[in-house]
Amino acid sequence: MLNYILRRLLVMIPTLAAISFLIFFIIELPEGDYISNQISMLRSTGESASIGRLEFLRKEFALDRPFVERYGIWVGLWPGPNGFDGLIQGNWGWSFEYDQPVGEVVGPTLPLTVALNLATVLFIYCVAFPIGIYSATHQYSVGDYTFTLIGYLGLATPNFLLALVLMYLANSWFGLTVGGIMEEHYIGEPMSGGKVLSIVAHLIVPVIVIGTSGTAAMIRRLRANLLDEIYKQYVTTARSKGMRESKLLVKYPLRVALNPFIADIGNLIPSLVSGSVIVSVVLNLPTVGPVLLGALQSQDQFLAGFILLFVSILTLIGMLVSDVLLGYLDPRIRLGKEGARQ
């Protein structure tokens, strides 16, 4: 098992390298950089007093070097003006817009981002698991049809529109403010029981909004998998031996059907993270989503780059966890028969 995890971790390294390069390429796509834009803005207004300082800053952040060198400095594989000082060394860069280190800008938002995505994954499992089993064992019942219909709607409704509509409904029907992460009087206060409760209460709507389409997909998947298994010979055999129906289900077909269920969550995670970014913007949650939007709009490149890398790593870790779980469940994968997985 340990071997498998190690192998899986090793595979992640080249992936991470490729992703970081891609992200750096993307954030460098806009013409110029934050400081050179400021300089040209100052030039056009005729103010030239602070240009010297900005020129110095450009040198300080190595923005005047060629592209590959800048990438190396950002990651920490190439000596910058201050020696090796990049992501690997724990320096996440500088946010020009906030005039603060990136770590301080995004620091408070990271735990909530992780919590939100984790809560969504848990929500999907907790909801999709029982409903999927119910739908498969009660095929074509009223309940099955209802869940199928809801599932279709859930798949088709884009999450940020759902957030918008829910926010409106909650506001006009119950007078609730759904946006934000806690009630206003808790902002700035130290952690307390009431504050935690308030945060949890405010997380419910975003979790449902982000998780709906994923849940719908998972229900469909589990139902189909279980239906494939439930009518097989070994189930009939077990039943004819007088095994109790509930025990039988858990013991045999569910275990087989569980495999793709776990594997799929890995495929779902990128779209969950995508969803959490835009839903956070709509619902005004202090996750990395709104910060990323702001950073992209003001071309705050290191901030945007770090957030993009962070959400990508989040999905990579999610996929890793799902792979490890899968390896734990399925010896064929753990022992490295690649073909057995397909």
Binding site: T15, A18, I19, L22, I23, I26, I27, L29, P30, N267, P270, S271, V273, S274, G275, V277, I278, L292, L293, L296, Q297, Q299, A304, I307, L308, V311, S312, L314, T315, L316, M319
Partner: peptide, 17 residues
């Protein structure tokens, strides 16, 4: 690699460019 990336943040970054 492409499939492991969250689509929307990348779309956002590219269209901001």
């Amino acid at each position: 690699i492409m499939r492991s990336l969250p689509e929307l943040p990348l779309w956002m970054a590219l269209s901001a460019a």
